[in-house]
């Protein structure tokens, strides 16, 4: 019994270390490709997600995609110059709520997936770069391909996505104007409250649909 437990622990630890090693050495374009392929393979086989089960899509995103996203960086970018006036607690709350909103939106987009093909463009970066853009294109019959780009930067534990651009539009900085409005109207706490309300509202519509 004890040996089995030791073995399991060793295996888990070994696996964990391997994952960590993989994440920190894998190139950014390879990382985006492997995560995308993983997610698409699952969505292709999952009838529940295809028929609009947001909860299941959120689960998938949380386990497969979240580890490679840097939400603190994303939130800082979305808030812009007002970020500096926020307290550490406010920053944490903003990051948490913004993360919930983005995960929900992205998961919903996944439920719309219908056999589109994703092309990965060759990475234009030098080995010493610490901030790169990985370019992809989503192709579907009868429509112009949609460009989807991922901005990543190098962290101690590997490359992390800090921005996603659809047709050249940053899904992160696209929030800056409305975040600025909220902060001018009700301060940082006002923005936190708006985000919380928005997330609650989205949660309620999902529950109502079920």
């Amino acid at each position: 019994m004890k040996t089995i437990r030791t073995l399991l622990a060793a295996l888990t630890l070994g696996f964990g270390l391997q994952c960590a090693a993989l994440a920190s050495t894998i190139a950014p374009d390879a990382l985006v490709k492997s995560v995308t392929d993983d997610v698409i393979t699952i969505v292709r086989q999952d009838k529940a997600i295809q028929s609009g089960d947001t909860r299941k899509a959120v689960e998938l995103v949380e386990t497969k995609v979240l580890p490679y996203f840097d939400f603190a960086h994303m939130t800082r970018l979305a808030v812009g110059k007002d970020w500096r006036q926020a307290t550490p607690e406010q920053k944490a709350a903003l990051t948490q709520e913004f993360k919930t909103l983005l995960v929900r939106t992205y998961s919903n987009a996944l439920t719309q997936y219908r056999n589109q093909v994703i092309d990965f463009k060759p990475l234009k970066a030098r080995p010493e770069d610490s901030d790169v853009i990985v370019r992809t294109e989503v192709r579907q019959p009868g429509a112009k391909p949609v460009q989807i780009d991922y901005a990543l930067d190098r962290k101690v534990d590997g490359w992390k996505v800090y921005d996603v651009l659809v047709a050249g539009v940053s899904l992160v900085t696209n929030y800056r104007d409305s975040f600025g409005q909220e902060i001018r109207a009700g301060g940082v706490d006002g923005l936190i409250k708006s985000l919380k309300d928005k997330n609650k509202h989205l949660e309620a519509t999902v529950s109502a649909r079920k």
Partner: peptide
């Protein structure tokens, strides 16, 4: 649908979207 779900203020969201989108085009 995505924009509606994502946006705090749909007007501001679409305005910012349009400005970035056209610059990219």
């Amino acid at each position: 649908t995505a924009a509606e779900q994502a946006a705090l203020d749909k007007y501001a969201y679409l305005r910012s979207f349009y400005i970035q989108y056209r610059l990219n085009q």
